[in-house]
Design a protein around this nucleic acid. Sequence first.
DNA 1: AATATACGCAACCATTTGGTTTATCATAAT
DNA 2: ATTATGATAAACCAAATGGTTGCGTATATT
Lengths: 106, 106
Amino acid sequence: MRRDVFQAIADPTRRAIIALIAIQAMSPSAIADHFSMSRQAISKHMKILTECELIRADHQGREIYYQLEIEKMKDIDKWLEQFRKVWETSFNQLDDLLSTIKQQNK
Amino acid sequence: MRRDVFQAIADPTRRAIIALIAIQAMSPSAIADHFSMSRQAISKHMKILTECELIRADHQGREIYYQLEIEKMKDIDKWLEQFRKVWETSFNQLDDLLSTIKQQNK
DNA sequence: AATATACGCAACCATTTGGTTTATCATAAT
DNA sequence: ATTATGATAAACCAAATGGTTGCGTATATT
């Protein structure tokens, strides 16, 4: 059972959950109200998100407030970093220019 | 069959492929040499990456060179944007400070 | 003390995923 | 013309995924 950030954010429901609790910590039931899905299904998503440490559980009485672990989101950013170098320089435009020249010389 | 960037990068092999061809366009066979996996399996990954427009096929004779569509990678960056706001401000440190104060007041 | 609420776990199920092997097709080389 | 090479497609399979329902348990409420 693979359990990393990338697999976690692959599911659209989980991405929506992340966006929800980024604003404010929420209980599973409260989250479930936002989806047409059982509370148990949400619980499973919360488990996956917890396992890859994208969220943290904060027990308060019989309720559990899940909070986004924003630090972990940076993992995605870190992975993107290598590509950001490419798209921030104008390599692409340069490529396009070069192939245009090649075409013209034919 | 869902086919979006997030589902595409969920698989570690596909992430490795993306990193490979980011440097230089490559044929499926050349890519397959980097993995202990059949050429056909790589082809399937290329198909998925193509379907979500993360890569582009460049046919040259009987070979196909796959190239990263760097623009599409920005989709991930765009999604991250909303969270970047959170981690770039010092909300987290503030939270930590507040809970420390709460602890001390007990 | 009895009841209601919030939650997670287990068992189950259909579908998807990620690989395999075999077959087919197109281009290149002999 | 024949053979070799590069690639996809199809059929198949085990495992993972994403949901369900039913149940047990802890905490609140009455």
